[in-house]
Design a protein around this nucleic acid. Sequence first.
DNA 1: AACAATGCTA
Length: 613
Amino acid sequence: MLVARGLRRLEVAARRALHGFVFPRSAASGMALPGTAARFHDYDAAVTSCIERRALREGRQVHARMIKARYRPPVYLATRLVIMYIGCDALEDARNVLDGMPERSVVSWTAMISGYSQTRRRVEALELFIQMLRTGCKPNEFTLATVLTSCCGPEGIHQVKQVHSLAVKTNFESHMFVGSSLLDMYAKSENIQEAHRVFDMLPERDVVSCTAIIYGYARQGLDQEALDLFRKLYSEGMQCNYVTFTALVTALSGLASLDCGKQVHGLILRKELPFFVVLQNSLIDMYSKCGKLLYSRRVFDNMPEKSVISWNAMLMGYARHGLGNEVIRLFKDLREEVKPDSVTLLAVLSGCSHGGLVDEGLDIFDIILKEQSAFLNPGHYGCVIDLLGRSGRLEKALNLIENMPFLPTPAIWGSLLGACRVHANVHVGELVAQKLLDMEPENAGNYVILSNIYAAAGMWKDVFKVRKLMLEKTLSKEPAQSWIILDKVIHTFHSSERFHPSKKDIDAKIKEIYVDIKASGFVPDLSCVLHDVDEEQKERMLLGHSEKLAITFGLMNTPPGFIIRVIKNLRICVDCHNFAKFVSKVYRREISLRDKNRFHLLRDGGCTCGHYW
DNA sequence: AACAATGCTA
């Protein structure tokens, strides 16, 4: 029985994955309606049949027949009606039946709460749950597991804690379904310690709880921890299904570890799982974030069925790598297969921006404005402002911000400020910076860019003013770090790294490189240093940047001709970008640099970003 | 009646 249920769940999941959550409905009516003299068993059989076939129209007829015959269904049968309506996505009808019930069972309440939960109507789910408690009905393990999935709004953590305490009182805390849901919700509200504590308390570790905790780490960006935990649980014999692998692959996208990614992909292939769109989508994304677009494309091309997300993941991959023409080509193919959504449009605009296809991007934006403007959100405008900024049309960008149907977000102003830096426009830059500093006075990055703009214009007095402002506010930015993966070992570097075991060798090598590239024309960009120190010290500080250390380490530890893949957690600094360009030329090495936003592929002194990022 | 679930830009 249990096994059969498990298999059905799997099948349901597979169908959902394949058909994008749309269940096939029964086509023709094949059921005789209960007659006027019908009794409980006749109605029960009819409603059950409708539940199984998700036959809404017939269900309504049965319900109407009951009313017409003045038949008052007992709690059980009325509950079945609620379940029937929910299964047919007719939530309002279900609610009407529930509200009309003189008595309700735990099952009736829970079914309705579950209906709201599954359709993301969280507020209604929680309100109904509270109403249920007020009437004195005691929740059971089904209710708690269900209602928890609705505790993920902004107030989520408080709600989770309340339901948690209720679970403790009712002794369901360690119930597998309740516990899994609980740990997942803690993880979703960024409370991974508590999530792990709940996980450790569960009587056993099943696929769902293991997957939820691994996903929890991956979602927080604790990718290394997610991978380590998977390794541990896997060696302890944990069961895996396609959701587990989806979680794992997501963690690997964050780590950008191509070797681990390939290894896990191999493991997945050996498991001979049936086809799941979701898992394949995560593989497309993983390979593109590891810098292997060819593999992404191979996964993409081999999919027997694609969802719009598959296309979007592939588009984003091309966009991240600055391959604008590929984005536009794939977008054309996409429109013949699926309906674009707002993420598709974002990917296309972002692809045009990263690929330097300014006019093409603006044309596409015009078409979108005419045909699908309902899809547009501030993000799309952000991409277009970036596009205008790239081509130096800063006034136009400013104009668009003022006339768009949204309030500008800090990110949008930030994008324009970056453009002002690239095009050395102090006038617009000051204007934009003023808005931005008002909105996020604590964001150190904005001060840095403004001071870069002043520095590029030689306005040293103003540079000093901005620095002073920063010092007064004692702002600190997220510490920069870069990493490189060699032989499946992750080597992480921080600025002015002091603890790496190869520190001495790296220092020696970086000085050697410095001499070589300077001889080829490299000039350090001192405006990248914001500390008020003398020039010699500035040069020394620049050499300590984490991406330079990682590149140097890669150059030392890989054979000639080997591509150096470095990942950075923030945007790459101008001086380091220049450094990498010269290294690629002088040492004849390709360098793939993934920063927070995109890939830079440096080859023979040039970069795929076109020097705008 | 119930737990985990892919893509998101400057």
